[in-house]
Design a protein around this nucleic acid. Structure first.
Lengths: 230, 230, 230, 230
DNA sequence: TATGAATGAGCATTCATTCAT
DNA sequence: CATGAATGAATGCTCATTCAT
């Protein structure tokens, strides 16, 4: 049912088959529920070969994460062409992002769902990718400010937070689009652009929403971070 | 190391202790990696008692999800007081949300990370909670439009997408805040309000970002949804 | 669903309720598959009470065996009246036997199926009852010979074997009758009497079926007992 | 203590070793009391290998039943040579039966004791074998009648009952012989032939034992089937 | 290069049994 | 007399991993 069982192929090819099978299995079953047996069978090879090439389940999963992270970032970077103005770059980057996540749902699941839920090691791996994308978006925001000849006057942390929020919204929309039939990548991108761009523009123009001095009352709505209940 | 081993307590109390231990363990280890042994030990009871009271690992996890979902939605609802104007409601709701997720990081991990990655049954459980929150936010958007005496003129799907994006951004920020020391709930809420409110305002005023006719090129950036690569 | 839960009843009564529940549960589920929980619930009492009265699962099972064995032997003895001629005694004893096993299928299952399959201790318990019945039947055979004024001239062991075979046939027929709707105790008894009585008569008259000198051939049909393959 | 621990042998061989160990363990301990651990150890392999080859305890037990049932029926069929007259066939079939049960006491225990007491599924498996043997015996009875040029004139059900009783007696004698040292297969067969053959002859000659009109009295000796006490 | 054979270690679940009241 | 609360000890089963060929 998996790849056609052809004997004696070069290592690189076999490895990709294994990663394909692994991404699919991890994406659908989850890291722990995926068994090496299933992956090997789906890849059309024997289990010892998987170990020979990829050492362990952990290493295999890490390899999956890396491959998928690379594919995703490359897709986004390829989408956002630097010669365009910042807003167009953001638009095309988002479109590329949604297109990629829609075409590789298992890879996306591995990155967004599985890698973050099964140990610090894997989480760190995606965090790196995410940081790269956030940095990219941050840069875009700053570029946009520069293009608009406006001094952004946004504190470092706030820009980070914005980029975080934007990326978070994009991730969430990707999940939602994958789960909702009929939503195109362009639609997702448009929704997010509409939502974000005007906000960013306003923000850069200094129009901010000002929080009330103090609306803290009663139950647990203390604004400051309190020690978490463990 | 867990709860003080006190013998002979009423069932209701013991059940809560077990849920505490389970939320913590599930939140940190993940559903599959968490062992009933560890949970029982952390709860200060023997494994059979856990089974006697909570039937199975699945049921235990479901009970965790329900308890944490209820706690979170109640915290948000308690935060957003309906007598306030819509923007203030959103603000205080967000603040309550970030406060709660910061104080209950394991509960938040259970809801946001674990429940969504370990089977349709659990995912459906959180999806219900999420839907409730999205509906709440959607209502807030519509109320805001009404308060501003503007005909929102936003198509149904777009409002849904907006609410999705907003909630997604909030979830993402919650994760980020939990992982970044020193970020307060107020800061997260302010970031998101700034990001979202102006954008929403512009949107309702009809200022939209218009996507270019066609910027598709080369690699995989087709805007339409294509069959996913599996 | 079990006995009506009445509080505070004399020990003897409670014990019988427990034995009722136990016989039913053991008969239907088997010794090992029957849980003390189920028995206690069916008896309408708490588990500790079962232990208080009957000590352990083993003791409880033994008590069941004894009670049912006693009931069965008494039914058979009561059926076979000693003032009748031997054939009539056998007939009425058989009828009583089949009647009893049909009316107490769970008790019969405990004796015939469960007790013999779960350890030497229990098997010995039924073996005693069985020996008693076999002895009774043996006596009947000898009586019959005496009544017919014939010197039986049957060696001890052969008579034992005959009684064994007769009892075994009866047991087998009891199972068969319990599993085959519409078979009455009289029918079972008649079948067996027809089958056995004439044979016994012939036998006592010296008409025997003579085994061939030696028909042993080839595979494993050695008549002598050989060391069992373990 | 178990089989000599030889490493790396072909699957078919290992499977037989496992079945040997399983038959022995199931036969002596019973289905439920037998642990997969014990079976694996006795087979000289690790537990996972047992599962790899035989899937589950249920499947393993079923495999045991099938193997032993096949061995037993083949032994009986091989013993009863069709070219002989019916009485000789019965004799040699019985001899083969007692020889086999004596040489394979655990296999016999699995079939006769364990399989019938641990679930319908297993019981059905042996019931099929038993039905085959009963049919074989029934045929022998009819053949015998034909050879004797007598119109048997035996109603269908009665012949079934007879065959049942005969087979039941044989089974019972097998148990008895296994438990009584010094009893040979020939002796058991002779006992049964003497017991049965003359009776059958008489029966076919129309000499029947006639039950009395009504000998019912008092306690529970009602001949008709009454509702069982549960 | 590739695999059939094999296992150590762990996990969810159940059960007979006992305390403390 | 009676029970709610609690557990030690198994048991069936699975999985990542390795060895011998």
């Amino acid at each position: 049912m998996g790849a056609v069982k052809t004997k004696r192929m070069p290592r690189a090819v076999r490895e990709q088959q294994m990663l394909d099978a692994a991404v699919r299995t991890f994406g659908q079953r989850g890291y722990m529920a995926a068994s090496m047996d299933e992956i090997a069978e789906l890849a059309g090879v024997s289990k010892p070969l998987v170990y020979l090439y990829l050492n362990s389940k952990e290493d295999l999963f890490t390899a999956c994460i890396r491959r998928e992270a690379k594919a995703l970032t490359e897709a986004v970077r390829a989408g956002a062409r630097p010669e365009l103005p910042a807003d167009r770059q953001l638009w095309s980057g988002l479109t590329a992002f949604f297109t990629h996540t829609a075409r590789h749902p298992d890879g996306w699941a591995v990155l967004h769902l599985q890698a973050r839920t099964h140990g610090e090691v894997f989480a760190a791996e995606v965090a790196a990718m995410r940081a790269e994308i956030v940095a990219f978006v941050t840069q875009l925001i700053l570029d946009a400010a520069r293009e608009a000849h406006r001094d952004p006057d946004l504190p470092e942390r706030e820009v980070s937070g914005l980029a975080e929020a934007l990326v978070g919204a994009a991730e969430s929309l990707a999940d939602w689009a994958n789960a909702t039939p009929g939503v195109t990548a362009r639609q997702s991108a448009a929704t997010l652009m509409n939502f974000a761009w005007a906000g960013l523009g306003d923000l850069m123009a200094g129009h901010r929403w000002t929080p009330p001095e103090d609306d803290t009352r009663a139950t647990g709505a203390q604004a400051g971070r309190t020690s978490p209940v463990r």
